[in-house]
Computed example of a mutant assay.
Amino acid sequence: MKKVFIAFRNVSFRYGEEYPWALKNISFEIFSDEWIAIIGHNGSGKSTIAKLINGLLLPQEGEIIVDGMPVNEETIWDIRKSVGMVFQNPDNQFVGTTVRDDVAFGLENRGIAREEMIQRINDSLDAVGMTDYILHEPHRLSGGQKQRVAIASILAISPEVIILDEATAMLDPKGRHEIMNTVNEVKNKHHLALVAITHDLNEITQADRVIVMSEGEVWLESNPRDVFSRKEELQQIGLDIPFIAKLADDLSSIGVPIKNQPLNHEELLIELWKYHSKM
């Protein structure tokens, strides 16, 4: 039976009494060893969810449970041992003069013994393919390399869930693809829960489940294929449709039957091959 690792129960939040509610009475659960994508337009509330999970913000109404603990001022430091967050701009997370120093920072704060610390640094950098850069200065790395180091720094503290808060937004398409593949490998190897906050529907294809936010509310909770199939509705709430979904629609409109909504190029090619083999 799956373990519920994160639970939002009727949670509402706003940034001040003069502001509208950023989140309005939302409820959902995230299981351990699950990849959840939380998507939505700017201002939909998705990044607020990330900060609430990690205790950077506390709700005005409702309750958040992480690893069996209610999120409050007394528990946030224990919760942060289980929850690691990677932000949009990795430069904001760097504190060390070298990659090694940066990955070591969180371990030193937790009083990890030196021998174990060295092993964790090496293992986490190896997991993201950055071992060769261990003595490099973080600010001299490329954007994708910086995000890999940020992920390694989180991985080193052995969290049970990693939150990516728009972590690929500053990267080009190739960099985004590489980071998401790296994250997927890390998740599967270490059996982590993964929460990916994004506005880019191209990043949800590998997720187990998708939560779509709109105007501070849960608009839809479903699987990626179902989300992709709701093209017109997604556009109405301000989300752009991935190229593959648009192409599948265009092909259908000229008489090429696409029975299963493709999530990627490979699935679209399979559908086209099925159609070609029947001609």
Rank of each mutant, 00 (worst) to 15 (best):
L141V: 02
E232P: 01
E178C: 02
N223S: 09
K174T: 07
V195I: 12
P159S: 07
V212R: 12
D123V: 01
L201T: 02
H190N: 14
L239D: 00
I241H: 04
N202S: 09
G175R: 05
H191E: 07
I134S: 08
E185G: 05
E215M: 09
D226G: 02
L239F: 07
L141P: 08
E178M: 05
V210M: 09
E221Q: 15
D172S: 07
A207D: 06
G144A: 05
N122E: 13
L155M: 13
T205C: 00
D240G: 08
E160C: 00
A169K: 12
R176F: 01
K174W: 09
Q145F: 00
G238Q: 10
E215D: 13
P138S: 04
N223R: 15
E137I: 11
P159H: 11
P173V: 05
N188C: 06
K246V: 01
V195K: 12
G216C: 03
R148E: 02
H177Q: 14
L164R: 13
R140Y: 01
L251W: 00
R230S: 02
V183P: 06
I197H: 09
L192K: 13
D165A: 03
D240C: 01
R209N: 11
L141T: 10
I121L: 10
V212G: 10
L155P: 07
A150W: 03
I157M: 15
H139D: 09
V128L: 12
K174A: 06
L155R: 15
G143V: 03
E178V: 03
N188L: 08
V186H: 12
V186Q: 12
R225Y: 00
L234H: 02
P173W: 02
V227G: 07
Q145I: 04
K174D: 06
M213T: 09
M213Q: 10
A152S: 12
D240N: 13
N188R: 15
L201M: 12
Y133E: 10
H191T: 10
A196F: 01
S229G: 07
V186T: 09
E232W: 03
S158W: 00
A196K: 15
R176V: 02
K231H: 05
